[in-house]
Design a protein around this nucleic acid. Structure first.
Lengths: 219, 219
DNA sequence: TAGATTGTTAATCGATTAACAATC
DNA sequence: TAGATTGTTAATCGATTAACAATC
């Protein structure tokens, strides 16, 4: 039985990965959980606990080898392998993703882009042609695509998601403002930008309100 | 003393808001925590606990009035007021945000866009002109801008963030892959897309690995 | 009034932090 | 060997779920 690893732990791994990458660039060879904790503003205890979910990557009295740990986290995250990706929805957001150069560095290869807008079909973005959705299923199979980014309106998303799942897609990066319903063996990662903005709004607003209250008190 | 409301609660509010909005569109007038919990796939207990952080919005024996609750959550999130926003970085992602029509509906008004690329300066996106960053501070003050979306490379982000803070910005929606350092009275909401994609990669990869193991067992 | 459902307290569960023995 | 720092167990804290009295 595999011990299930908590979502909280997983969501911290990419940040560790980023900091380790920066340390490598700075030529740092080793780091202790304590040093790293100060840089990242988390507890050293949390770092050690998190990492030990996956094995002992450090050494007593020494700390962690930056390069080694960086590689190991990449393996855990699955970014050491190639992921074939398509983007459904070639609007600004879809194109923004396509233009995001760092993808390739982490094993994500954009195999194709799709849209229903005839004005976009045929255009080429970063060497990738925008296609109509008619030959979607065929394309997925032929190009061994496992992942799809959904940057289409919420009205179209569930239907397209169904088609993706039937065609064999196993991972959906969902930017549409709906909760997709998919089988157990398909994973969905939501990026709901409007919800993110609302969280910011909440925090900004409550900060404002607090200030106003404090001003009132003074008088 | 205000009781501090947990981050977990806040991050669920926008989703409640979205579901209530959809219920309104469907003409539903009232809903019980139990019904809503089934739709949203959370526990009824959690819904009631979450809402009661902010006050009693329901009525025993009746449930919650959809429209009323929708309005109240909007107030809590601060999306009943106007937020003046600028976008720094007019690349694909910045333009995607500018084109995202629903912003206005929730009180976010895009006052301006900024870039350093001379080829973009002067262009107009959705009625908003792209400006150079020279007159950034002046623009913020004159237009009473409180929020900024940062869609620029990580190398430039900290410097611009400093300028924003000095000019009086209180909320930063950060799409750059750095952790910004800001004073206590400024809030930052991070959208690290590459980290989101890595989380998806982890889940997709561990699903794959699991399957392989099961296949091995069978043999 | 009887039935339904909230608001809220209490119980459980999980995640974070602290502590320290193991060991490089 | 002595010092440093991990890996891991135990303690604490917080968040989620369950239960039920209050009340519409």
């Amino acid at each position: 039985m595999e011990k299930e690893i908590s979502k909280a732990v997983i969501s911290r791994l990419p940040r560790y990965y980023r900091y380790l990458g920066e340390l490598m660039e700075d030529g740092v060879e080793r780091i202790s959980s304590n040093e790293l904790s100060q840089k990242m503003k988390v507890t050293a205890s949390q770092i050690r606990q998190d990492l030990n979910n996956f094995g002992g990557f450090g050494q007593q009295g020494y700390g962690y080898n930056v390069k080694y740990l960086h590689t190991e986290i990449a393996k855990i995250l699955g970014i050491d392998r190639q992921h074939n990706l398509i983007i459904i929805g070639a609007g600004n957001l879809g194109q923004a993703l396509a233009n995001y150069a760092n993808f390739k560095k982490h094993g994500f290869v954009i195999k194709g882009m799709f849209d229903i807008n005839p004005r976009l079909i045929g255009l080429v973005v970063r060497g990738v042609e925008i296609r109509g959705v008619d030959d979607l299923e065929k394309f997925i199979v032929e190009n061994e695509v496992q992942m799809a980014a959904l940057t289409i309106p919420k009205t179209k998303a569930p239907e397209i998601a169904d088609r993706l799942v039937k065609a064999g897609i196993k991972a959906i990066w969902n930017f549409a403002h709906v909760d997709l319903v998919v089988p157990d063996d398909v994973v969905v990662e939501n990026v709901h930008l409007s919800e993110s903005l609302m969280r910011l709004s909440y925090r900004a607003s409550s900060l404002q309100d607090q200030k106003k209250k404090e001003e009132k008190k003074k008088r």
